[in-house]
Simulated assay, not measured.
Amino acid sequence: MPRFPRPGGRANAALTAVTLFALCSGAWLLRDGTTTHFPPQPSAAQAGTGQDGRGGQEARDLAVPALPPSPPRRVRIPAIGVDAPLTGLGLTRTGSLDVPPASRPDLAGWYEAGTTPGERGTAIVAGHVDNADGPAVFYRLGALAKGSTIEVDRRDGGVAVFTVDAVEVYDARDFPDEKVYGPARRPELRVITCGGGWSRGTGYRGNVVVFAHLSGSR
């Protein structure tokens, strides 16, 4: 099954690979019996170019001051038609990141024991790629391009604006825990769903990960 690391606290320090079944089963494709509707996957052109794999010097130069902590309420990704409410996610009893209910394909989640989007550090947003009835909130995440905008409405009334540095896909066996979940000196965001191939026996074999940095607020 696809694997996710266990997110840590605000510094995202505890990084242990765990299995996350609910996000990556490919229930729609299993029911449909076909892969003709397989979600888009990022091309090599969308990979990071910096030494740290997070977008390079240009992206670092564009960073803006961090925002104070404030829980997020909604995420918007105009380029792929995402406009979704956010729910808080914790950890399951086995230590894996919990997921939004499969019955709510329009809902995304954020790891509420970690960094809030816009705060200094690495904030984590995750959502389903599909459910038994069809595409879910992050079905088109793999089609996102570098330079695209992600907006997060915050409970304090502000909006944190992020710019995408890279969109990458990883096989579960090679998931780069530290790169994805490790602490950051600037405000960064990761948006994660399933991808990396699919089979009837295992579901999705990996994950699509969007790397973005805070580039503005309003």
Rank of each mutant, 00 (worst) to 15 (best):
R104L: 06
D106G: 04
E168G: 07
R173L: 14
G157W: 08
A123R: 00
T149A: 13
I150C: 02
S148N: 13
P78V: 10
R73I: 00
R120S: 11
V167R: 07
D98I: 05
T92N: 08
L91T: 09
D177W: 05
S148D: 14
A132C: 11
R140S: 15
I124W: 03
E168N: 10
G114W: 02
P105L: 09
Y139S: 14
T94P: 12
A113C: 07
G95K: 07
D171L: 13
F138L: 15
L107A: 06
V159W: 02
Y170V: 03
A145G: 13
G157K: 08
A102L: 15
V152W: 02
G90S: 08
D177S: 12
P100C: 05
L97P: 00
A123S: 00
G90H: 01
A108V: 01
L91Y: 05
P100G: 01
L91W: 04
A145F: 11
A102F: 10
D174G: 02
V169K: 08
V161H: 11
A136L: 11
L91D: 06
L91P: 02
T116F: 02
G142R: 13
L144G: 07
D130V: 13
A102G: 14
R155N: 14
G90M: 04
R173G: 13
D153H: 08
S96N: 15
V125Y: 01
R104H: 02
P176G: 05
Y139R: 15
A172I: 07
T122M: 08
S103T: 14
V180E: 01
R140V: 13
A123N: 06
P135D: 14
G157N: 09
G121K: 01
E112R: 00
R104C: 04
R73N: 05
G134D: 12
T163P: 04
Y111K: 00
V129M: 13
V159M: 11
I124M: 05
A102Q: 12
R155Q: 14
